[in-house]
Structures are given as C-alpha cells and as structure tokens.
Amino acid sequence: MNKKQRINMFLLVLPFIALVVVFNYVPLFGWAYAFVDFNPGVPLLQQEFVGFKYFKLILDGGNDFSIVMRNTLVMSFLGILTSPLPIIFAIMLSEIRNRVVSKWIQTVTSIPNFISWVLVYAIFFSFFSLEDGVVNKLMISLGLIETATNILGSDGYAWFFQLMVSIWKGTGWGAIIYLAAIAGIDPELYNAADVDGAGRFQKIWYITVPSLMPTYFVLLLLSISGMLSNGFEQYYVFQNPLNIDKLEVLDTYIYSIGIGRAEYAFSTAIGIFKSVVSIILLLSVNWLSKAVRKESII
C-alpha cells in the first residue's frame, strides 16, 4: 500500500475518532467546574477559583455526603454478598436432566434482565403498592395481615427490598456465563469421580465449584472496582420522600445536587472522586489478580 492510500485510510477513520474524542475526552475539560464557585452566565475561565474546597467537603462528609456514601457502600456490599447466587442457580439448573425444561427456565428467568428499570418499577409497584398491590390485597383477603404495609415507601425495608429487586432482575441472566463454564467441564472428571464413588454433592463441591471459581473471581474483582457506581436508574425510580434517606446513592446524588439544585461544583467534584476511586480500585484488583492468578483482568 502506498502512502496516499494509507493517508486515505486514516481520513476514513478520522470522523469516528472525532466522535470518540468529543463524547469521551472533551467533557474531561468540564472537570474544571469542580474547582470554581459557579456563577451562571459567566465564562468558565472567569469564574472564581476555589481550589480543593469541594473535595474537602467530600472528605468531611458535608452536605449529606456521608449518608449517601453509606447507602452506596451498603448496597454494593449487599450485592457482593449475594454474588454467589447466580453460581448456585447455574449449578441447580445444570442438575436438571430434561433439556427442554432447563432451557425454558433459563429463558424465563433471564427476561427480567432485559427490561428497563422503569418497567421493573411498574411491575414492583403493581405488586407491592399500598392500595393496588397484589401482595397487600392477597394477604388481607387471606387474613394474614389486617392493614396494608407500605413497602415501597418504607425506610426500614428499603435496602433489603432493593436487594430483592436486584436479585430478581439479575440472577437468571448472571447464571448464563456459569452455565457455559459448566458445559465446558471435561466429563471425564465426573466419570472418574463416579468410579471413586463420589456422591452428587461431592462432585459439585470438588469439581463444579472449583472450575467456576476463575470466572467468579474476575466478576467479583470487577464488582469491587465498580463499588461506587450502583447506577442511577434503579435507585432513582424507586426513590420517594419516605425512603430517600436509604436510597440516595452517589449516582442519584450527583444528579439531584447537580442538575436538580444546580450545584455544579460539588456534583462535578463527586464525579471526579468516583472516577479516580474506581480507577485506583481497578488497578489494585488487577494487581491482586496478577499476584494471585498470574493473569490480568483488563
């Protein structure tokens, strides 16, 4: 290929590189908002420079930051704690002999992963709301409870309830990757175990589980590095004035102070804090992975 053709090739790719740069790199200049007291209508360069004022506010846990941080970490830890569930689900599913039944269960249980959080809310609302909720209506008509409980507007159940929602949405699909790993295990291993007289649970514990560990380990490390990002949508759709003390997480807080209350500086500072912490976490878990498994995850 001659030089002109190579330049032509580069020119063909250029518009796409421009898109990447515009939407991913140009906004990084906006990090400057974190260092000024923002006045609307004044160009960024003429804003009053305040240095690390807003980062100090983060470290002091000011403006509810400590509560929001607590909620974020609680939800992430609950998520990590329940992260073996897809493995258990995959192992149970692989024990089903009938291929048609297991395929059907797999399809049905992974659909919730592919609906939007708005739809998830719509569904949980129709099941748990005070007046129209199936659960309340059913329990009252069966005489199990006397008055309806407002689960969606409850402060006390909020974390547990969101954990249940996440499990409902994610377990079936989360199992898919483990099912593929189980399908890839050499059947000779099981045959050899049969000869040695191993029972069902021994085979699961000594063959299946260890072969799933590498995959689990990578996913676990990735979820640790994403610990500060619970996502905006889930917590925002389920938020209401009664449970906001428990369900305001960093991603929703960035929205509510940034766009809702126009506190650009503090919101941007939290965004930077999140980005920096997740990069540090990612590099650390990657280092850990190299040390333990001699394999990098990124």
């Binding site: 290929m1 090739m9 990447v20 906004p27 200049f29 965004g271």
Partner: peptide, 28 residues
C-alpha cells in the same frame, strides 16, 4: 496499514474505564 493503529485502538478502549461524570457530560 492504518497509521497510528495501536494509538487509535488504545484511545478507544481506555474510554471503558473512566467516565467524565454527569455535569461535564450534561454541559457538553
């Protein structure tokens, strides 16, 4: 044959690991 091939590839891949944040994105 693509000039700066590996630089371009890295430039794209790195975007998976950081996010500019809501406000800078909104302003953009």
């Amino acid at each position: 044959e693509l000039p700066f091939r590996s630089t371009i590839y890295r430039l794209i891949i790195v975007t998976m690991f950081f996010s500019p944040g809501l406000i800078p994105w909104y302003m953009l």
